[in-house]
Write a protein that binds this DNA or RNA. Structure first.
Lengths: 217, 217
DNA sequence: TAGATTGTTAATCGATTAACAATC
DNA sequence: TAGATTGTTAATCGATTAACAATC
């Protein structure tokens, strides 16, 4: 399956899942796309389009989707049972905030270690609800990834000037997925195969709001 | 001017600005769209399209854009000189992380107060580089906004179940812009006028990466 | 002049919304 | 049956990429 999924779709799927979780419905009950619109804010047309696109065709006319089946499908798409272990490169404020981000927990995504080069941070640890997550020197990253081949994803929260270089290193170490949080659009090294990269711009939505308010009329 | 700006455009404009800042160029030097591509990762075609869309036509053929003029245009679009004061509703981990987010500082965006209902948090404060930002009870929000009419924007980092209700209250108190960080697409109350809302989904990019890696081939 | 780079238009691509036949 | 809701297709909308005449 070579199907490309957009950020938007996966985001909405997450909303469906999280909203459904909170409703505490019985397995046997049904939920319609109209009801999903109410609880997630996504239009029922969009809901059905998303399900169609992802091959979820478990609906019953006049009833909707059986909650039990829908859960199963959504969990499968979101790989929740499988989960993921990731490392965070850059243990500054943002890096540490990511490490304790609650919604990652809900999705079975765990940060196993952080990496940094700052003397005051290296070889300390971050306490996340009783669990100690170590901060290592970035020099140990290659070694660490060799020892933990199950880790395929890295979150990049280093300063902007170091971002592209760090990305290149991560790719050379065999990392398969990278989320870049530096305010720059990074590019994968030429001829990179099978590595996923997303550039994530925290704060852009606030800048948009500021623009709209100050430039309106 | 009723022109709608997309999140994407404003995000790229931010990249141009931030990258330009770091280059430390002399005011008289010129920078081409090709060079901007190199330093921001955005294609030169996209750069010129963005400038065209936003009415920035200060380029000189064969030279590019005068740095001084470009700075002035970008600062104007991003409202950097004017800046903005905002409140954060919900002083949990995410709320506090937002309060100290460095890139907001660069943009002259300041959090003046946080609001929460949790007894342990109310009437304490958050220390951001020596500055004490107070946390008030949400009951005092209406009063606070009346006393600070310059504050037109709120960041919403409350739990999901309280998000829509809090949004409605914010609108009724006269807030003009809201960024929602709860994992749900909020809707403005019917017939709301002149209020901007953006739903921001932190973490979606990681979920996308997980999907791509586990569903590839 | 020749080459480079702009501003702008046109073509392409992708995502959302609307519509509706099928049917429980 | 009549009404509701699905799965799916088509229409619309918006954003990106490509192309190129103008010209410094």
């Amino acid at each position: 399956m070579k199907k490309k999924i957009s950020l938007r779709v996966i985001q909405r799927i997450s909303f469906y899942y999280e909203a459904l979780l909170k409703l505490n419905l019985t397995d046997d009950s049904f939920i319609s796309s109209k009801k999903l619109e109410e609880i997630t804010g996504v239009s029922c047309n969009q809901v059905r389009q998303d399900f169609f696109y992802l091959g979820i065709s478990i609906g019953k006319q006049k009833k909707g989707y059986q909650v039990k089946k829908l859960f199963r499908e959504l969990r499968k798409i979101l790989s929740i049972d499988r989960g993921a272990e990731v490392v965070v490169i850059g243990a500054g404020r943002l890096g540490r905030a990511l490490s304790e981000y609650k919604l990652f927990k809900v999705r079975n995504i765990h940060v196993t270690a952080l990496f940094d080069i700052k003397p005051g941070l290296v070889d300390t640890s971050v306490d996340i609800k009783g669990e100690e997550i170590p901060i290592y020197h970035t020099d140990r990253l290659e070694q660490y990834l060799k020892e933990h081949p199950e880790i395929k994803i890295a979150l990049l929260s280093v300063p902007e000037h170091a971002a592209q270089e760090t990305l290149d290193r991560l790719v050379s170490y065999g990392v398969k997925g990278i989320v870049n949080f530096a305010p720059r659009i990074l590019k994968l090294p030429k001829s990179t195969k099978d590595v996923q990269l997303v550039n994530d711009c925290i704060g852009a939505s606030l800048y948009k709001i500021v623009y709209q308010i100050y430039h309106k009329k």
